[in-house]
Design a protein around this nucleic acid. Structure first.
Lengths: 140, 140
DNA sequence: TAATTATCCTATCGACTTACTAGAGTTTAC
DNA sequence: GTAAACTCTAGTAAGTCGATAGGATAATTA
């Protein structure tokens, strides 16, 4: 399940990406337009900035803006930076791999083998959809 | 992420399904063979029984056994009964649908539309893999 | 019937996570 | 220099997770 944090982040990114220009947008504007608690969104946008996806400008006329490269960043990257592993089990995670303590031989673990398939299918979407495409997506 | 509960459940089901016969198997046997805390496994197997996937026999020579129909049950069913929704967002869940409070028009929500795709890909595996196939699965 | 075996059930626990909120600090534009 | 806006640190209520403890219940065996 997607946490609210990640969901809100994707909605905020979508909001910024739908704009033609990369001007700063105030938190309050995004928060009202997307129906997200402003204070909560504040911390989310800050995370996205620290992760290198957004820029910010303080003071009057300030706000958060999309860094140009973020438009071609796959959703998988945003997901991982907010939510962590995409895989359903750490032992099939590409970026957050961890061995199971209870499992001697991964190749013989049915759960492992099934979850690899799920991971691959999921990644085929999340890795191949950029923010740009995410926004352009009409009932795909 | 798969909870340990669900992971252990799948491993236990796999253990039972790998057997040719459907004789009762003691919790302690499964627990040792799969490296799962016995007490925790106890409650998991009980859930699976209540959900109608396993039978049980008390007393000497007792244990849990696979109900025949469970062999042809898709993994998705086990998953849902233990973990709940498979979808990443309630608003795209087939069996646990819930409307987002923050979203006016689902069809125009980018998150919604993307998560439909992820759901379909995931279901294409979990709905089309029966316990039998799950076990037969060799590095597929 | 008594003893043994194994499931069934309740309830408790500490650690962690989630979704937020409060409030003060800092930078910028005018 | 003051108002506008982001930055940052804390904290918190509620819930979940993984596990444990301890006994109740039921079935089998002798």
């Amino acid at each position: 399940m997607l946490s609210r944090k990640t969901k809100y982040a994707l909605k905020a990114l979508s909001h910024l990406a739908r704009r033609k220009t990369n001007d700063p947008v105030q938190i309050s504007v995004i928060s009202e337009s997307e129906n997200i608690s402003q204070k909560f969104l504040e911390s989310i946008l800050l995370s996205l900035k620290k992760a290198g996806y957004l820029g910010s400008k303080k003071g009057k006329g300030g706000g958060y803006y999309l860094l140009e490269k973020s438009r071609t960043t796959p959703i998988a990257s945003f997901y991982r930076s907010l939510e962590g592993p995409i895989a359903m089990v750490p032992c099939v995670s590409l970026n957050f791999y961890e061995k199971c303590e209870d499992c001697n031989d991964e190749d013989e673990c049915d759960v492992h083998n099934l979850m690899i398939q799920v991971r691959d299918k999921t990644l085929s979407i999340l890795e191949n959809t950029t923010l740009e495409e995410f926004v352009a997506n009409q009932t795909s």
